[in-house]
Computed example of a mutant assay.
Amino acid sequence: MSDTLPRTTRRDAGHPPSGGGLPGAIASEWTKLWSVRSVWWCLLSSALLMAATAGQLAIYVANGNTDDDPANDRGVLAVGRIAVDAVELTQFAVIALALLTITSEYSSGTIRGTLQWIPSRARMLLAKTTVVAGVTFGTGLLLGGLGAAVAVAVLGEWGRLEPAETVGHAVGLAGYLALISVCTLGLGAALRGAVGTLVTLFLLLAIVPTMLRLPDLGPLNAIADALPGSAGLHFLRGESDAYPALVGLLIVAGWAVAALLAGLAVLRRRDA
């Protein structure tokens, strides 16, 4: 009787199907990411923003070192630090890339197909997280190198290029961008809309910390330091006035995990 069974039935009986599970979900998300044209525009925009912002900041440093006001003199500066300072603006192009991986599916309705192919909400979100974190970490490394290269060209004698230090700045920048992109993905899954997610992130990263610091009150400054944007800059700049730099990285990671858990909770509770 076994000789009359279809070939596919005999094969499936002896071997489990391949290509599924988490590796299959990651492969699917990877393919979907690079098939969207706007992702390439986000990458190009991030490179242009990094080059332009790093160049402008380097010009400020060079001009400040040569004018008559000693308060503007920053002396010789590590070129990687210019890239770190430039990430405050550049990060929003990278955030837009992470945002597209989830909110574009809700706006187009393709999230229904995604959840049909990957019924496990946790697996789907983990696959997206893996792809987003990997792509934005690699992007951060390239952006860190680009910002340092621009700074070297503009700063001249006022720039310090030490390979280990420059690589450290680039790796730190890449880690921060990966974590803030994962945070974006989680918020996008929870809020389900690009506008609401982007506004929330803009408030958390830029507006609220600035407003909290204006009165220069200790409790408000402490709240600002606990927000992801401020914590990330503390980490990237190696500042230890509020807490050790490594604590800043842990705070950003905490925000990313909290956002993912919120996104997963909404995915499990609501239909697509």
Score class of each variant (00 low, 15 high):
218 G>R: 15
29 E>L: 03
18 S>Q: 13
102 I>V: 15
252 V>K: 00
91 Q>Y: 05
59 I>C: 10
66 T>I: 08
66 T>E: 14
231 A>D: 00
55 G>D: 08
194 A>K: 11
178 A>W: 02
159 G>F: 05
216 D>M: 13
133 A>I: 10
84 V>M: 03
225 D>E: 13
170 A>K: 08
118 I>Y: 02
245 A>R: 08
111 I>K: 05
48 L>T: 07
241 D>Y: 12
121 R>V: 01
174 A>Y: 12
222 A>E: 12
256 A>I: 11
34 W>N: 05
33 L>R: 07
128 K>Y: 09
40 W>R: 02
100 L>V: 08
58 A>E: 02
236 L>D: 00
60 Y>P: 01
17 P>V: 08
217 L>R: 13
166 T>Y: 09
19 G>P: 01
50 M>D: 07
88 E>R: 13
37 R>S: 15
134 G>R: 10
9 T>F: 14
240 S>L: 10
217 L>F: 11
102 I>R: 08
167 V>K: 11
191 L>Y: 03
234 H>A: 12
247 V>G: 12
45 S>P: 09
131 V>M: 03
8 T>Y: 13
33 L>N: 06
218 G>F: 15
267 L>G: 08
92 F>K: 07
55 G>C: 06
221 N>H: 07
222 A>N: 09
48 L>A: 14
149 A>S: 10
166 T>L: 09
179 L>W: 06
263 G>C: 06
187 L>W: 09
216 D>H: 13
199 V>P: 10
247 V>L: 14
27 A>H: 09
73 D>F: 13
220 L>H: 02
200 T>S: 13
256 A>P: 12
39 V>D: 11
82 I>Q: 10
238 G>F: 06
245 A>P: 07
43 L>V: 11
235 F>T: 01
6 P>M: 04
267 L>P: 07
84 V>F: 06
72 N>R: 04
246 L>K: 10
180 I>F: 06
141 L>H: 02
112 R>M: 11
